[in-house]
Amino acid sequence: MCAYFFISHRCTSCDDIIPYIRDIPEVSRCQAIAGDMDWLVYVQANSVSRVYQIREQLDLLKEVSRVETLMVLYEAI
């Protein structure tokens, strides 16, 4: 299962949240983005329940103000 998490944070610096994201082994990409959200995080997990656990882990961080999840349904390329 693959998913994208859009993350908005409350940190002074965007980089303050990186240690938490780096500790999640299923994260293969983490990119700073412009717009309403701060980070785009790509996750490859072995199940939907694991994707959900990762989202819950991120939601529980006091540094995180919002998480949006987009599940990948199909990879064309």
Rank of each mutant, 00 (worst) to 15 (best):
M1W: 01
M1C: 12
C2M: 12
A3V: 02
Y4P: 05
Y4L: 15
F5D: 01
F5R: 01
F6N: 10
F6T: 10
F6H: 05
I7E: 00
I7R: 08
I7D: 00
S8I: 01
S8E: 10
S8R: 15
H9S: 05
H9R: 01
H9N: 08
R10S: 13
R10T: 13
R10F: 13
C11G: 13
C11V: 02
C11K: 02
T12E: 10
T12Y: 00
T12P: 01
C14T: 06
D15A: 11
D15E: 08
D16Y: 02
D16F: 05
D16T: 10
D16C: 12
D16E: 15
I17N: 02
I17Q: 03
I17V: 15
I18D: 03
I18Y: 13
I18W: 11
I18K: 13
P19W: 08
P19S: 06
P19E: 01
P19I: 04
Y20V: 00
I21Y: 02
R22T: 13
D23P: 00
D23M: 06
D23L: 05
P25L: 00
P25T: 00
E26A: 11
V27F: 04
S28A: 06
R29E: 15
R29Y: 14
R29I: 08
Q31F: 13
Q31W: 13
Q31V: 13
A32R: 04
A32L: 12
A32E: 14
A34L: 14
G35E: 08
G35L: 11
G35C: 09
G35F: 06
D36Q: 14
D36M: 14
M37H: 04
D38H: 03
D38G: 05
W39D: 11
V41A: 05
V41M: 09
V41L: 08
V41C: 10
Y42D: 02
V43E: 09
Q44I: 12
Q44H: 08
Q44R: 05
N46A: 08
N46Y: 01
S47A: 09
S47D: 04
S47M: 04
S49D: 14
R50S: 07
R50T: 13
R50Q: 14
R50G: 04
V51Q: 05
V51W: 08
V51Y: 03
V51G: 00
Y52Q: 09
Y52R: 15
I54Q: 03
I54G: 00
E56Y: 02
E56T: 11
E56F: 01
Q57G: 00
L60S: 15
L60C: 07
L61T: 04
E63H: 05
E63V: 04
V64P: 05
V64H: 10
S65M: 11
S65I: 07
R66V: 06
R66D: 14
V67R: 00
E68D: 03
T69D: 09
L70D: 02
M71I: 08
V72H: 05
V72L: 12
V72E: 07
L73N: 03
L73E: 02
Y74R: 04
Y74F: 12
E75I: 06
E75Q: 08
E75F: 02
A76W: 15
A76E: 11
A76I: 15
I77Y: 09
